[in-house]
Amino acid sequence: MRSTATDSPRRFTMLTLVLYWTSILSGLTIPWIATIAVDVAKHDQSLAGAVRQLSLHLFAPGYNLFIIALINAIPFLMFAVFLLFHLGLSPLDDHHLRRRRSAGVLLTVIGLIGFSLWTHVTTLWQADAQAALAYLFLPFLLLVLMPICYAFGRALSALAFR
């Protein structure tokens, strides 16, 4: 049988921490990354120009990109805390359980990042007066997405490591 990151306790701890901090930092930075990406791709700005635009609008009334990042990060932070306990307290002697949990958590992190990034990019790409509502609804949609992605990841893992 192949050795995976979940087999060695040290590597498993590393995987847990990587997923934990990836979830936190991606939750905070996805709106900013999307803003820069749309400025560069759609508005033909240089990367430096897009970064400057981002910094100008972080606290500007009507833009509040800092607050948008914090709102976006809420479900990511919640999931990060969950995964820290869920993977961190997994029984060391049960490889199958650790694999299934890791797969569930990994797929959830990927799902959250993908859905959040897609929402932010499409909202900025087709911006209109109501587009900002997406930022308010997104955290709730991500909360709904979490158990679905997790269940899907565990099911995949169960099939793969049967």
């Binding site: 934990y20 914090l70 932070l77 805390v81 306990f85 961190g88």
Partner: peptide
């Protein structure tokens, strides 16, 4: 993971959030 490792990472998250709060407070 040990409880100490978990607590350390939770504490680091708390610190990050406090830092973000401070940045927001300073700019508003």
């Amino acid at each position: 993971m040990t409880f100490r490792q978990i607590s350390f990472n939770l504490g680091a998250l708390g610190l990050l959030l406090a830092l973000l709060g401070l940045v927001y407070w300073q700019h508003t």
